[in-house]
């Protein structure tokens, strides 16, 4: 029973990682860049919720909605102002810019909200579902359900809609996609919008677990989710889901074993290294097709 509830906890934090990892992997697949500012979008979303809660005091869902919309627009804006001008520049220039954007967000948050962490309980879902000896927090169940719904929706979007298929096409072969009449800039914009919205949503679930918000709130989850994306095979959407969930479960199990609990982070990154040694493209990553 203990194991099942640990597993469910792992699945739920894994779902949160997966939501963040999807942003990394989609942007990497489609825009061919590592958006190292992605984790900080979570933090920005958190502060927006904080501000909204102060202004609106009660209405949690409106606060969440505003945060998600704000982050979607922020993602679009950052892509437009910081990354689009570098289209075609060396990957290193883009990487440095992304790191710069990350520091910009963190510093701005520090200036505006100061360094002391803000306590913010976004959604207070107390209580637990009890089935015999099994006890699962409702917050875990909600997180799991939302993560599952988001991943299903995204999968359907990519497979079944014109824009989704265009994303696959751009990710596989940008020039060939252009020759179809696809506006690649528009597709990249949509990608940033989706990724940033998911990051803001993931922030909600992180705050449900640990309601303390600082300017580096998104840094560690960002790196963890990036690790998850690489484990799953960066560029692959199912890969990010699998990688995120795997990482969450490993983390939850590791936390439960007193002997190794303090080394949980180290264990996670070691697993990344081992997986990359065995399968350099990640679990579901594809080797790019050779040109005939």
């Amino acid at each position: 029973m203990e194991f099942i509830s640990t597993l469910l906890n792992g699945l739920s934090s894994g779902g949160t990682y997966a939501m963040i990892a999807l942003g990394y992997t989609m942007v990497y697949g489609i825009a061919k860049m590592l958006n190292f500012a992605h984790g900080d979008v979570i933090m920005v979303g958190g502060y927006i919720m904080y501000v909204m809660m102060l202004l609106l005091s009660q209405n949690v869902f409106l606060g969440i909605a505003v945060a998600v919309v704000f982050c979607v627009l922020l993602g679009i804006l950052v892509e437009r102002l910081a990354y689009r001008p570098l289209r075609g520049a060396s990957p290193l220039a883009v990487l440095i810019t992304a790191i710069g954007v990350s520091y910009l967000f963190q510093s701005l948050a520090l200036i505006v909200f100061k360094s002391s962490p803000k306590m913010l309980s976004v959604l207070q879902i107390s209580g637990a579902l009890k089935l015999g000896k099994l006890s699962v927090d409702y917050s875990t169940i909600v997180t799991l359900a939302v993560a599952a719904a988001v991943m299903t929706a995204l999968t359907l979007f990519v497979k079944k809609t014109k824009t989704g298929r265009a994303m696959v096409a751009v990710s596989e072969d940008r020039d060939a996609a252009k020759l179809m009449g696809i506006n690649v800039n528009f597709i990249i914009m949509i990608t940033f919008a989706i990724g940033s919205g998911l990051a803001a949503l993931a922030g909600v679930f992180m705050l449900m677990k640990a309601p303390s918000l600082s300017n580096t709130f998104g840094a560690m989850p960002g790196i963890k989710a990036f690790t998850a994306a690489v484990i799953g095979g960066i560029g692959s959407i199912p890969g990010a889901m699998v990688g995120g969930i795997l990482l969450g479960v490993i983390e939850a199990i590791s936390f439960k074993i007193p002997l190794i609990a303090p080394y949980t982070d180290a264990i996670e990154f070691s697993i990344l290294i081992i997986i990359l040694l065995v399968k350099p493209t990640g679990l579901l990553g594809k080797r790019r097709r050779e040109k005939v």
Binding site: A169, D175, A176, L179, G181, I182, N183, K286, K291, V292
Partner: peptide, 23 residues
Amino acid sequence: PTNKIVQLGMTQVPEGRRVFSEL
């Protein structure tokens, strides 16, 4: 931009075919 040129009624079958292998 290429996508606008395509809308004018031009298209190119690129060298090496470049079909979308994942579709």
